[in-house]
Design a protein around this nucleic acid. Structure first.
Lengths: 347, 347
DNA sequence: CTGAAAGCGCTTACAG
DNA sequence: CTGAAAGCGCTTACAG
């Protein structure tokens, strides 16, 4: 392979200074159109591509975005994170940026050190939940004036955050179950460290209240957003005296656990028990019965977060900006009206 | 935030030249232990971290590895790719490298242009299937002498490849079904462009042959590695005259499709139909019934590929190196002995 | 075992 | 609208 062409080669061929070539490639204003075209033509013939490292060093920018998320177990794939990642990647490309994937552990004592190191290697961060809800992380952000966009429903003064209307979505799903005739609706909360968990719970309670259905703590179980906890919570909820006729799990993996528990305990779904999830992960559509759930606009979230970050990097912009996107209830086969004799079944 | 410390600051504080600092950080030999410790101490107090861009520019290396894979649909998560990615990421970290995730489209006319551009921004590539089985891609690799490791069972002269013993694994799974007493075993092939598809098919045939069971083309259906194709193939296989008592699908998503089709057509699994998959994706354990499948050592594959690449980058090493890892049959609830009356059921 | 000098390929004020 | 010079923070031969 020949020596890679440099900015000098392009400048020479185009008959301009390297500064002009630089201007053209950085889309700076104040370049005559004619000149620009000459430069592009020269670059084309030479197959010139700017050297990233040189740009980085000279401009003190990296053209890199870091995506940071909690990854308790590298063995288990997290569909939500994967979707965010792929959406963000696409948006980065549009701006000539690369995405650096950075799983960290929220409970690691080195967390802040890791974030510090990462922050030096990228122009900005996209911080997913639950990291974006961790006090130490937000403190790190504000103290170091980190360029970042947070995925969280709790705003951080001076920064941008993107979130989904979890309260509304959970409210809507609960309303759906109520409208089918359910009155005893079990709820499986998500991981308590995630802001979403509390919002979804709030939506559940709001819908009950609005419909005059008393909130019963015995119908609520604390899960951890994974299959196993959903399974365990469902077994508990389905073993007590006064049975629920529906269970609303805060995410799809937990809802899958509920389906398994129901099958084991011979609760026909949706005949004897309705089950709803949240996320519309790939599992949901192919579950049996297919899962009623909430579809989050993950691709839009990722794109919006990335674009918001790009804005801030370009304009040095800061200030508050809190975007909240609507989610959508997806009705499938796992929810139906309660059967007349429901609630009288044995465990 | 204060000015970031540079190599000069460290050298000043440690009382050595910057060259020595550089040597220490690059783990070069020929540095007295005492000196090294002085340098590390100075770096520690200053919280010094080498500037990546400067290293890149000066050394003409990027400390970046590109992971390239075919991504036909960014909306759908591919558990296999995600697992490779996370394993490779971990290995990269051990070597001070970052991983650049690069989904491309195998059918894009710009594929080679994209690979060319990517190749200039990284030190080496890890190429997943089916890209690693595409002639144009391999041609690009050899013509440009690209530093890379391929995930493929078809070796490429001068390069390293990592693969899984697909033939053996498929053979073993088929043997398992035969040993249960199945004689009419349906097989759903994977995407024909993937090398694995053909190997798994070969393993299936080999086991049949060894056991004196004639190969019946009517029992084979062509899938595409996704749920929908598995579902469609199963419907076809279960609608013909001479029914299979077991279906071996070339991967788990297709096996999930088989389970759905079986449920719809009222083939009890495993009573009337045994079902086996391949991959041991997260779906498999939580499926109903839980899926007998083949566990691939994905983490090991990813680590091995990354380490092999690192070797080559460090030693400028080349030459053939073909690693083949063993897979493992995981027995779960979806396979059992055929019932006596099986094969006489209606569709 | 260690150092002084040159240079990697860009961008950034500063001029004009 | 365009250019000449300096410099970003490292590494790389080359000396010694």
């Amino acid at each position: 392979m020949l020596r890679r062409p440099t900015i000098d080669d392009v400048a020479g061929l185009a008959g301009v200074s390297i500064k002009t070539v630089s201007r053209v490639f950085n889309r700076a204003p104040n370049v005559r159109r004619e000149t620009r075209e000459k430069v592009f033509a020269a670059a084309e013939t030479l197959h010139y591509q700017p050297n990233l490292s040189a740009r980085q060093l000279a401009s003190n920018r990296t053209f890199l975005v870091g995506l940071v998320y909690d990854d308790p177990d590298p063995e288990t794939t997290n569909d939500y994170v994967t979707a965010i990642q792929s959406g963000s990647l696409l948006a980065c490309r549009d701006y000539g940026y690369h995405l650096l994937i950075n799983p960290v552990s929220v409970s690691s004592p080195k967390l802040i050190d890791e974030l510090t190191a990462l922050n030096r290697q990228v122009d900005g961060l996209i911080v997913l939940q639950p990291l974006s809800d961790v006090r130490a992380v937000n403190q790190f952000i504000t103290e170091n004036d980190v360029a970042c966009v947070r995925l969280s429903q709790r705003p951080l003064s001076g920064y941008a955050s993107i979130s989904v209307a979890d309260v509304e979505a959970a409210d809507e799903m609960t309303e759906h179950l109520l409208s089918l005739g359910h009155r005893r609706i079990g709820f499986i909360m998500g991981h308590p460290e995630h802001g979403q968990s509390h919002d979804r719970m709030a939506g559940y309670r709001r819908a009950l209240e609005r419909n005059g259905v008393p909130f019963d703590p015995k119908l609520v179980a604390q899960g951890l957003f994974d299959y196993d906890s959903g399974y365990a919570c469902a077994r508990r909820l389905l073993s007590q005296g006064d049975l629920p006729t529906a269970i609303f799990a805060s995410n799809d993996p937990m809802a899958m656990g509920v389906l398994s528990a129901a099958r084991e305990m011979e609760f026909d779904v949706p005949g004897k028990l309705s089950v709803a999830g949240f996320d519309d992960s790939p599992l949901a559509r192919h579950a049996y019965p297919s899962l009623t759930t909430v579809r989050q606009p993950i691709a839009s979230i990722a794109r919006l977060a990335t674009e918001e970050l790009m804005q801030r990097l370009q304009n040095g912009g800061s200030g508050d900006a809190n975007h909240c996107l609507k989610a959508e209830v997806i009705l499938r086969a796992s929810t139906a009206a309660p059967s007349p004799q429901a609630g009288h079944a044995s465990s």
